Simulated scan of single mutants.
Amino acid sequence: MFNWKHEAQDRLEALLFAHIDDRAFPCVGAKSAMARGTLDVLACSSIDSAWDDVRIHDALMRLAEDYRRDRAMYRSFAVVFEGPGDLSEPEFERALWQRVQSLSDKDVWRGQDYDARVSADPDNPHFSLSFGGEAFFIVGLHPRASRPARRFERPTLVFNLHDQFERLRAEGKYETMREKILVRDEALAGSRNPMLARHGAASEARQYSGRVVDERWACPFHYSGEAK
């Protein structure tokens, strides 16, 4: 009997790995995670549907638990959706935040505390998402992204552990890594991404979708629990 999930998992995972392995791909963190075997991938059906949200949240809970047990660096989790492949940048951004809101609501429903090291307010410069008690930020990829570094054949959400970047900062490695990514991004696009800001300088919510937004942009996310 044909199993769509297994077929899609193998195909979409291979597609993402090939994309990251491309010499031009600028994110050295993702390359390190893939090389170490610490980039987990989950294939899902549609980014504009809640169909797979429980599966995604289950995986985030496992990642948070595993990371607390073994704080190995360069762990990451990518959700690759089969489609839609024709979403404009605003449409992709809208779908991204719909998934985020749904996943966050499930986190509240399952009684998970918000990571106290970050803010649940998307207007706060110290904002990050929280799943399973661990803070995450998202990098969105999709076919119609204007920035080449965010362009990929399938809509994708990459969840990165906030704690890892704090550890890199504490070890004095963060700025070097950030500069490498910016240099590679500039080589790919001809300019540096104007949306990339250091954590604490501006809300990272503005960066998730990859779309260039101005000061009038309002994040649609609202945490439904009680942040401590």
Rank of each mutant, 00 (worst) to 15 (best):
D163M: 13
N124P: 07
R184I: 06
E175Q: 12
Q112F: 11
R154M: 13
E153R: 15
V118R: 12
V183D: 14
P90C: 03
R117N: 14
M177K: 05
V108M: 01
D163R: 14
E89H: 07
Y174D: 09
Q164D: 06
Q98S: 11
F92K: 01
L188A: 07
R167G: 05
K180Y: 02
Y114P: 09
E175W: 01
R154S: 13
N160T: 03
I181C: 00
Q164N: 01
G133I: 02
L196V: 02
D113W: 14
E166N: 14
A95D: 08
G132K: 00
L103C: 00
R167I: 10
E134D: 14
F136K: 11
D163C: 11
M177C: 00
N160M: 03
E186Y: 05
F92T: 03
D105Y: 10
P148K: 05
P90M: 04
A95F: 08
D107T: 09
Y174E: 02
R99Y: 09
A95C: 06
V100I: 08
L129G: 11
R169I: 08
R167C: 07
G190E: 10
P148V: 06
R94K: 07
L141D: 11
G133K: 08
A116F: 11
A120R: 10
R144V: 11
A202M: 01
D105L: 08
N160P: 04
R198N: 05
T156H: 04
R150F: 12
A205G: 02
E153A: 15
R110E: 14
V183F: 06
S128P: 05
P122V: 06
S128D: 11
H126W: 12
R184G: 04
A187R: 13
E179S: 07
G172V: 10
F131R: 09
T156A: 09
E166Y: 05
S102F: 07
R99P: 13
G200S: 02
S128K: 01
E204G: 03
W97F: 11
F131E: 12
G200M: 01
T156W: 08
S203N: 02
